[in-house]
Computed example of a mutant assay.
Amino acid sequence: MTQNTPENPIYLGFASQKGGVGKSSLAEALASILYYEKGIPLLVVDCDGTQESFFKLRERERTLIEDSKELSDQLMAHFTRFGKPAYPIIRSRPGRAIGDAEAFLRKTDKTAALVIFDFPGHAGAEELLELSIGMDYIITPIEADPQSLVSSFAYAQTIRDLGVSFGDARIRDLLLLWNKINRSANMAVVDYYTRYAEDESLNLFNARIYHSVRFARELGQGGVKGVFRSSYLPPARALRLPTGIDAWVEETIERLHLNPAAV
C-alpha cells in the first residue's frame, strides 16, 4: 500500500486525451479541498504547456487580491485562521516535471504527502507516456462523447499494459472519472462504456461529476464566500453540493490511501 508521507509523496497525474473535459478544473477543486479542508500537504506541478491553468489561476487571483482591499482582508483572515500558507504551484514541462518537483521539495522547507501533476492536453507520445508511468495514480476525466471515449480508453489500456510490462514503472492505477454528466440526458452512452470499462478491467470511479456552470466561478465573480474555482480557497460547500464533488473527493482519499488530518 502506498504511504503518503513527506519523505515519500504520492504522485497523482490528471490526464485527458481531449481538451475541454474539465481536467484542470477537477484537479484545482481536488487540490483545494484536500489541502484546505482535509489537511493534506501537497504540491502542484503545472506542466500543461501553454494552458497552464493552475499557474494562471494563481496569477489572476494574486492580481485581484492586490487590487481589492476587501478581498485582501478576507483572504488574510482566512489564512490567519488556517495557520498555513497557500499550497505551492510550480511550472514545468512533461519531460522534467518529476525532477522539478523533487528539486523543489529538496530545496525548500515545503513538505508534501501528495504531488498533483496537471498533464498537458497535447504532448509528444513518448514524453507523455514516460510521465504517465512515473505517476503512482492517474485520474482521467471522461465525458459521454463516443469519439473522445475511444482515445481515452486506448490511453488507459496503454498505461495499464505498460505498468505491467515495465518492472520499474511507478504507476499503480489509472482511474477513469465520468465528468460533466447531464442529469436530464439519455445515459445510454455512459452505461455502455461503464460496462465496457468493467469488461476490460479498467478502473472507474463510482462517483460521477455532474455538469454545472458553477465550476467556472472564480474570486472575481463569487467572492470569498461564493467561489468555486480557486487556488486559495476550497469550493464553497453550497455550490458543490449538486456536483458530486464531495463523494468523488472521499473516494479519491480512499483509493489513493491518503491520510486526512484535522484542520
Score class of each variant (00 low, 15 high):
Ser152Gly: 02
Ser68Asp: 14
Phe79Cys: 11
Arg208Val: 15
Asn203Arg: 15
Leu42Arg: 08
Ala29Gln: 01
Arg93Cys: 14
Val213His: 10
Asp173Thr: 06
Met135His: 14
Asp46Ser: 04
Lys69Met: 11
Thr158Arg: 08
Ala144Trp: 00
Arg183Ser: 06
Gly222Thr: 01
Glu200Gly: 13
Met187Ser: 15
Ala97Pro: 09
Gly95Lys: 12
Arg58Phe: 06
Asn182Pro: 11
Ser68Lys: 07
Ser212Gly: 05
Gly167His: 08
Met135Pro: 04
Ala207Pro: 11
Leu162Ala: 06
Glu143Ser: 13
Ala77Lys: 09
Ala86Ile: 15
Ala262Ile: 04
Gly163Cys: 06
Ile138Asp: 02
Tyr11Gly: 05
Ala262Phe: 03
Glu28Ile: 05
Gly124Asp: 15
Leu162His: 08
Ala156Asn: 12
Pro9Ile: 06
Lys107Gly: 10
Ala262Asn: 08
Arg183Gly: 06
Tyr196Gly: 09
Ala27Ile: 03
Gly22His: 05
Gly134Pro: 06
Asn179Leu: 00
Val150Tyr: 02
Asp67Ser: 15
Gly163Met: 03
Asp73Gly: 10
Leu202Cys: 04
Ser32Asn: 03
Arg237Phe: 00
Tyr155Cys: 11
Val115Asp: 08
Pro88Gly: 12
Arg214Glu: 08
Ala103Gln: 09
Lys38Gly: 01
Ser24Gln: 08
Arg237Asp: 00
